[in-house]
C-alpha cells in the first residue's frame, strides 16, 4: 500500500483509503517520538524546504521536527512578501527552489491555491501547510488522529465545528476529512461567517450554536481573528463571545464524554473560556503531539518511495 500521489494539497481530493493509510502510518510514527533516540534514518539524504510566506511558528516547527526525526534535512525559508511584490512570478520562484534539488517543499501561504500552483511548476513533492481559506490538510489529519485515538473510530461520530467558517482552512479540511471517514459534521457560526454553499461540502449548517452542540461527540472551536470585527463580520468581541464562545453552560449540551479541539493559538475568553480550555475535555496538547506524527507519516508516504516512479508522476503534472 502506498500513497500514489506526488503532492499533498488538500483533503478534498484524498480517498477514504488514503486517509486511513496516512492515519495508521501516523499512529505507528508516534512511537518514534517516544524513544530516547528520536530519529530514524528513513529519509536520510532527502531535503525538505519549509517555505513559509505566513509566519507560523507552530506549524513550521512541527514540520521541521517531523522531517528531522526522519533524518531528512529541513531548511526553513521565511518570505514576507508575495511574488507580486517581489516582481517575480510564482513560476520563477518555483524554478529557483527546484534548482536546489529539494525532495519536498512544504508551503504555507496567505493566498488560497498557491501550493497547488507551485506543485504544477515543480517536479518534487509539495505539501500544503495551509493556504488562505482553502485547506490545511495536515491539521485536519492530526485532528482526525486525535479523535480516533480517543473515540476508537470516526464513523458515526457527531462533530461540531464552531466559529469563522468562511475564513477557515481548518474547517474546510476537517469537513472533508471527517465526512469521508463517516462522521456527521455540523458547522455553526454567525451568518456573516458561513460561506455560500458550504452545505454542499457535505455538512449541516446552523447559526445556532446550542443546536450544533446538542449531543455532539467532538467540538472544534475555530480561532476568531480580531480584525474581522472592523469588517463588520460581528459587532463586538463581547457579543461574539456571548453568542458563539464555548463556556461550561453551552458545553452541557454536548455528550458527557465530549472532547474539544482547537487549532490554536487560543483567544482565551473569546471563542473558548479558560475553564473549558484547561478542562478535562480539552485535547489541545495531544493535537500538538499528533501533529508531528502525522507530518512524519506524510513525509514517509510521499518521499519514501521509488524515485523513478515519482519522476514519472511528476512528468504527468
Amino acid at each position: 500500500m502506498r500513497l500514489k500521489r506526488k503532492d499533498l494539497l488538500g483533503i478534498e481530493d484524498l480517498t477514504r483509503d488514503e486517509l486511513e493509510l496516512i492515519l495508521s502510518t501516523a499512529a505507528s510514527f508516534k512511537e518514534v517520538s517516544e524513544r530516547e533516540i528520536k530519529k530514524v534514518p528513513t529519509l536520510r539524504g532527502k531535503t525538505v524546504i519549509n517555505l513559509f510566506y505566513e509566519p507560523s511558528t507552530r506549524t513550521r516547527t512541527s514540520f521541521e521536527i517531523a522531517a528531522k526525526r526522519m533524518s531528512a534535512d529541513a531548511v526553513n525559508i521565511s518570505v514576507s512578501t508575495s511574488s507580486v511584490v517581489k516582481g517575480e512570478t510564482l513560476r520563477d520562484t518555483a524554478r529557483n527552489l527546484e534548482a536546489m534539488r529539494p525532495d519536498c517543499i512544504v508551503v504555507r501561504h496567505a493566498s488560497s491555491g498557491t501550493p497547488h500552483m507551485l506543485a504544477g511548476f515543480v517536479g518534487c513533492s509539495v505539501v500544503n501547510a495551509g493556504d488562505g481559506a482553502h485547506e490545511h490538510p495536515s491539521q485536519a489529519l492530526l485532528d482526525m488522529l486525535t479523535v480516533k485515538e480517543k473515540k476508537g473510530t470516526l464513523a458515526g461520530l457527531k462533530i461540531a465545528i464552531v466559529g469563522d467558517i468562511a475564513h477557515s482552512r481548518v474547517a474546510r479540511s476537517n469537513i472533508y476529512g471527517f465526512t469521508k471517514m463517516g462522521s456527521e459534521v455540523t458547522v455553526a457560526g454567525p451568518p456573516t461567517m458561513l460561506p455560500a454553499g458550504i452545505e454542499k461540502l457535505g455538512c449541516k449548517v446552523t447559526s445556532n450554536v446550542e443546536d450544533a452542540l446538542k449531543g455532539t461527540d467532538v467540538i472544534m472551536m475555530l480561532r476568531i481573528q480580531m480584525e474581522r470585527q472592523s469588517e463588520s463580520f460581528f459587532p463586538t468581541v463581547r457579543e461574539y463571545s456571548r453568542v458563539y464562545g464555548l463556556d461550561e453552560t453551552k458545553l452541557k449540551r454536548a455528550k458527557d464524554d465530549v472532547i474539544i479541539l482547537h487549532p490554536g493559538p487560543i483567544n482565551r475568553g473569546v471563542e473558548i473560556s479558560s475553564e473549558v480550555a484547561d478542562g478535562p475535555y480539552s485535547l489541545i496538547l495531544d493535537q500538538v503531539t499528533n501533529g508531528v506524527a502525522v507530518r512524519m507519516a506524510i513525509f514517509y508516504l510521499l518521499l519514501g518511495t521509488a524515485k523513478e516512479e515519482q519522476q514519472i508522476q511528476a512528468g504527468k503534472v
Binding site: M1, R2, L3, L21, S24, T25, S28, F29, V32, V40, P41, T42, Y300, L301, G304, T305, A306, K307, E309
Partner: peptide
C-alpha cells in the same frame, strides 16, 4: 522498515509494523 536500504528502490511501500 524505517531502516531499510531499499525504500528508494521498491515500487511498493512497506507499511509500518
Amino acid at each position: 522498515t524505517l531502516y531499510r536500504d531499499d525504500l528508494g528502490i521498491k515500487k511498493d511501500q512497506p507499511s509500518l509494523k
